[in-house]
Design a protein around this nucleic acid. Structure first.
Lengths: 125, 125
DNA sequence: ACTTAATTAGTAATGATTCCTATTATTATT
DNA sequence: AATAATAATAGGAATCATTACTAATTAAGT
């Protein structure tokens, strides 16, 4: 994989935020640096960056979001504001249990906890 | 919500399988019962059935799958065959931890464990 | 500088899902 | 059983996210 100005920009954009951006959000930001970058380039590079292990993809419903955080972690999703919040539960238990009970070789545990964040607790009813 | 032949068929199709079918799979089956049913009807009814709490939606990557199983459970996804396998880990721990640590009201925990199922363990390398 | 192949912009194509509208069917009421 | 009110439908168009295609560009080795 050789150097490209576009990929460098895309990577630094993803690395600049904790907001788990979508491809389109990255595209909008990238245009400010590389004015005539195309959306296809953004997708292609996001995929390459994932292949190389520099970013991770999170599926939020049926839309892809990207995350620079490589450490194993999970997400809280608030159904009021839609925000994805990083959390660390550190449960190696899950891996062990699954391996023993289901003879399943675990690569990755993707957990999203749906609910209401502290900012919106009262708006529930 | 009033009765419809279409919705009844769609529900019984989802309830007839453990394969976590996609909308299109349900559509193909439904055509055998209601020959000129339309895909839009399938989507509309799947959503209604979910609203009413009769089925659940699982996002498998960026494609929606439907599940009749209302009991809290998680899924193993084999990256070789793509199959989604139901599992029960029963960890109320997660709910408690999240509630205390992050002041987050938990509605649902969606966990998908990616890896290799016992049928494909050797094919890994 | 020259060559080679990876990368790009721009656009067309795809696939899943939603939206729109005239018609049909269910349910309550007479 | 006929009527009225309106939820639900079929069929197709529209949308949204993502991928594929292609000629032109560009990084990097020689």
């Amino acid at each position: 994989m050789r150097f490209s100005h576009q990929r460098e920009s895309i990577q630094s954009i993803v690395y600049s935020t904790n907001s788990h951006p979508t491809a389109d959000w990255v595209f909008q930001k990238a245009k400010k640096v590389v004015p005539n970058i195309s959306l296809g380039t953004v997708y292609r590079n996001l995929k390459q960056l994932e292949d190389v292990g520099l970013i991770k993809t999170i599926y939020d419903g049926n839309i892809a979001r990207y995350d620079w955080n490589q450490a194993p972690h999970d997400h809280l999703k608030c159904k009021e504001c839609g925000e994805l919040i990083d959390i660390e539960l550190i449960d190696d238990d899950v891996r062990r249990k699954v391996k023993n009970k289901y003879q399943f070789e675990v690569d990755d545990v993707k957990m999203v906890i749906i609910g209401t964040c502290h900012k919106h607790k009262n708006k529930g009813k």
